[in-house]
Amino acid sequence: MKRLSGFYLLAIAVAALPFIFPDNYFVTVVGVSAGLHAILAVSLNLLMGYAGQISLGHAAFFGMGAYTSAILTTRYGWNPWPTILVGAAFTGVVAYLVARPILKLKGHYLAMATLGLGIIVHIVIVQMGWLTGGPDGLGSIPSLSIFGWEVDSDERWYIVIGTLLMLVVWLALNIIDSRSGRALRGLHGSEVAAEMMGIDTAATKTGVFVLAALIASVAGSIFAHQQAFVSPDSFSFFFSIELVTMVVLGGMASTYGAVLGAIILTFLPELLVVFEDYEVMIFGGILMGMMIFLPQGLFIGLQELLRKLTRPKKTPATPVAEKKESSHGAA
């Protein structure tokens, strides 16, 4: 019960929002895109926050799912549902094939390799115009229908994506608190020690990489059906960086943090629109400022703030271990 209390709170909030703010653009339109971002951030956080493997190319898997669905439905007339599965299968296989060699790399080399992977996928999407529509993208992607219930309004998309988000959050929470989740966190903490405890670190990294890719792919397919249109811009390396930012901003190794980061980073530009020409500059400034002052991320930052406010000062803790290997972070 306690393990999932945050989950129930989140579920209640997601369910209540449309009733508190009916017909609100920020809930049904921006909210839907925040939901998709949150799904992506939660999946990336499994890989990055928990397993400590940085990826600057997550948008590629999102794009692969989206384009598989877009191509199969518009060019070959498929029903949307199987395209989600085919997209996930395709993305999963690609992720599996690249995972081993890529995840052997560490730190900045891993960052570079995943960045490169994302850019390569983006270029392929742009260049294979005969299939993908090139830079113009593909339109008229059909919407989803669930047993005759057409997902054809913003409200209905909110329900679908809200449900999917809660499902993904639930999966992530389950994983973290299990043998496999501890293996992930262990290899982040110390790769040799994890190996020595019998964890096949290479296989574990591959597993979480593929899992994160699968989730991203499904999110991509849903995105394609929801937008009814896809173009390469949505899957550029900027978006990958944005996803990483969501995870770090919310707080690495916290599922709720990832959700929070996604929500903030989705709403922030919407709010900054009023600043017009200053928008980009202010966005960059806020990003820098938050990371400088809350390097642990907002979620932990806020938690600590709450703790300080609600509890009287405690005596200083036991002396800290003299050495903390630089195993935190992604290096």
């Binding site: 501890r182 966190r185 262990g186 982040h188 903490g189 020690a193 020595m196 271990a321 290997e325 935190h328």
Partner: peptide, 10 residues
């Protein structure tokens, strides 16, 4: 290990 190899994140 001679140099602690703790999982400090747990």
């Amino acid at each position: 290990f001679q140099n602690l190899q703790m999982f400090f994140n747990m």
